Simulated scan of single mutants.
Amino acid sequence: MDIKQSVDMIEGYLELDRKPVGVKFLFTEEDFNNFNVAQKDRKVTYCNSVQLASKGKCMKLTKENQACPNGAAALKMKEVAPPIASGVGRHSKNIYHDVETSKSVSDEMQFLKEEPYGIAVMPLEAYDAAPDVVIVISKPYNVMRLIQGNGYFSGYTANLKTVGLQAICQDLTTYPYNTDDINISFLCPGTRLVADWKEEEIGIGIPFAKWYDVVEGVKETTNPFERDNKKKTIEKRLKERGLDTSGIKFNSNYDDGSYSGGLINLEK
């Protein structure tokens, strides 16, 4: 499997409205200059760059492009503001009931440890070489399926951490990068404003080192977890992409025969 094949496969098995996004940190000026994508010509919030990439745009960003101070801090392109680090800032806006709780949130966030010269943010399918993190923004059903795909090889998802702040930059980018583990986010009011995500959308961040296993896991868990009506649409999407459909089995699910007592209109 290569990057393009993995995107074809995941878009066959899941009904995604947005493209999976790849994020790559470029730690030297030489790496940045050699990365053959145009630098954004204006400031943009990091989360909006991810939104743009989910719709097909490719870009490089440096600290000069950063329009959100907290996003820039997560990416180590700006120092964390002292009021945020101390907890005073968010407490003063009544986000947390005391300074100690507010500070604990700042302390728990996993920001980038080494300052990059820049970042590439593009649809995953646009990469020739591996990015660092894959971000998928979608409806909860698809995030569930990606969690199940991860579980196929990795088991229980034990380290999910989120608090409804710094959702794209920390929850879905620097946390997976630092921990080599997946994470989910329900997004936050800031990114929902500036990136205009849909109310029903949430996100998952996946270290690229886990990406192929997650995709394969989604494929392998289709028969136990998907019902026949969805299997039919999956089969159709796979055929449209020229992908093999022989492994799809109808009338077979993990919970066959498990339920009793008044079930109505239970779809296979």
Results as ranks from 00 to 15, higher is better:
154 S>K: 09
207 P>I: 07
192 R>W: 03
251 N>P: 01
205 G>W: 09
10 I>Y: 03
179 T>Y: 02
220 E>R: 14
5 Q>R: 11
94 N>D: 15
24 K>T: 05
240 E>N: 09
49 S>I: 03
248 I>D: 04
37 V>N: 08
68 C>R: 12
114 E>S: 12
181 D>H: 07
194 V>Y: 15
62 T>E: 05
203 G>P: 09
254 Y>M: 09
16 L>W: 09
152 Y>F: 12
27 F>W: 05
149 G>A: 04
77 M>E: 10
209 A>I: 10
86 S>H: 05
131 P>K: 02
15 E>T: 04
156 Y>I: 07
232 K>Q: 13
76 K>P: 00
234 I>G: 06
136 V>P: 07
10 I>L: 14
107 D>L: 11
157 T>Q: 08
240 E>L: 07
247 G>R: 02
168 I>P: 04
267 E>Q: 13
170 Q>D: 13
246 S>G: 13
31 D>V: 01
206 I>T: 05
22 G>Y: 05
13 Y>G: 11
67 A>N: 14
60 K>G: 04
253 N>L: 02
126 A>T: 01
194 V>S: 06
226 E>H: 06
78 K>W: 06
190 G>F: 10
31 D>C: 02
3 I>M: 08
76 K>D: 05
189 P>D: 02
192 R>T: 02
214 V>M: 07
245 T>D: 06
20 P>C: 05
255 D>H: 04
254 Y>T: 01
209 A>F: 00
68 C>E: 12
234 I>A: 03
208 F>V: 01
100 E>V: 14
238 L>Y: 02
258 S>Q: 10
265 N>M: 09
247 G>S: 09
131 P>I: 01
102 S>I: 03
83 P>F: 02
63 K>Y: 11
151 G>T: 05
34 N>H: 09
84 I>W: 12
93 K>G: 00
235 E>G: 03
33 N>D: 04
117 Y>P: 11
230 K>A: 12
32 F>Q: 02
46 Y>F: 15
88 V>W: 10
109 M>V: 14
161 K>V: 03
184 I>T: 13
28 T>I: 03
133 V>T: 11
199 E>W: 01
211 W>P: 13
234 I>E: 01
105 V>P: 06
232 K>E: 15
267 E>Y: 00
182 I>Y: 01
12 G>T: 08
132 D>I: 09
220 E>C: 08
252 S>R: 06
236 K>N: 06
96 Y>W: 14
159 N>R: 03
70 N>F: 12
253 N>K: 10
32 F>C: 06
234 I>Q: 02
37 V>A: 14
140 P>C: 09
